[in-house]
Amino acid sequence: MVRYFIAALVACSAAASLTACTSGSQTDTQPSAKFVPLSIQTAAGEHKFTVEVARTPEEQERGLMFRTSLAGDRGMIFPYDPPRPASFWMKNTLIPLDMIFIRKDGTIARIADNTTPESLEPVQSGEPVAAVLELAGGRAAELGIAEGDTVSWTG
């Protein structure tokens, strides 16, 4: 899945403002994965998903790497407390993803749609965010999800 890109290698430390890179698993979900309901309120209505929570640094590093598919009603959320600038890359990510960068108030700051599998090009939030949501590539456009829409989840 997605590996975090570090603006500087020093950022890999615990005090860093960005989370960093690395390993993966070939399973479609992780054995200890936690799933929560998530909804996105758009101009066209509410869209519901069940998302895996990347809670630990290891889960965030692994993300959706090596997965070969992602159902249209599934995704992964990367929560940050406190909010911070986020930057991802697609190394070892085999499927295109939509990356939705979410502000602390739940509004969508930016959408990077159909990111290129296995790319090392950084995909950045552009501002501090409280979470990043990954959905199957093209799903945001298909559902009319746009910047300014509101995302909410529990957990």
Rank of each mutant, 00 (worst) to 15 (best):
A14Q: 13
G144E: 03
E134I: 04
P57G: 01
E59T: 01
T42E: 04
A44I: 08
T107V: 11
R84K: 13
P83L: 12
T116I: 14
A130R: 12
A109E: 15
A8K: 09
T42V: 06
P96Y: 05
A11W: 13
G148E: 07
P57F: 05
P128D: 14
L120D: 13
P128S: 15
L143R: 03
S23M: 09
N92A: 12
V132A: 10
P31W: 04
S152T: 15
A20C: 15
L135Y: 12
S17C: 11
P57T: 12
T116L: 10
F101P: 12
T107L: 10
S23V: 11
A20W: 10
A7R: 12
M99P: 05
F35H: 04
A43Q: 12
T115Y: 06
A141M: 02
W89A: 03
G144M: 00
D98L: 05
M1A: 11
I40F: 11
Q26M: 14
V36N: 04
E142N: 03
T42L: 02
T19C: 10
D73Q: 00
F66Q: 13
R3K: 11
I6V: 10
E127Q: 15
R55M: 06
M65L: 02
A7W: 09
Y80K: 08
A44N: 14
P37W: 02
D98T: 03
E46Q: 12
D81M: 08
L133Q: 06
A15P: 03
S13T: 12
K48T: 12
Q41G: 13
G72M: 00
A8E: 14
D149V: 14
P122I: 04
M90Y: 02
S23N: 06
E52L: 00
G144C: 06
V123E: 09
A54R: 01
S17Q: 15
G24Y: 01
F49N: 01
S119E: 06
P79A: 03
M1G: 15
A141R: 14
E58A: 07
M65A: 11
T27Q: 07
M76P: 05
P82V: 08
S25E: 08
L94M: 07
P31C: 05
S23C: 11
A140S: 15
E118F: 08
V151T: 03
A71L: 07
T150R: 15
P37Q: 00
V151R: 06
L143I: 06
V53Y: 04
T115G: 07
G75T: 00
A86M: 10
A130F: 10
P79Y: 03
K34F: 09
F78G: 05
I6F: 09
I102E: 11
F49I: 01
S17Y: 13
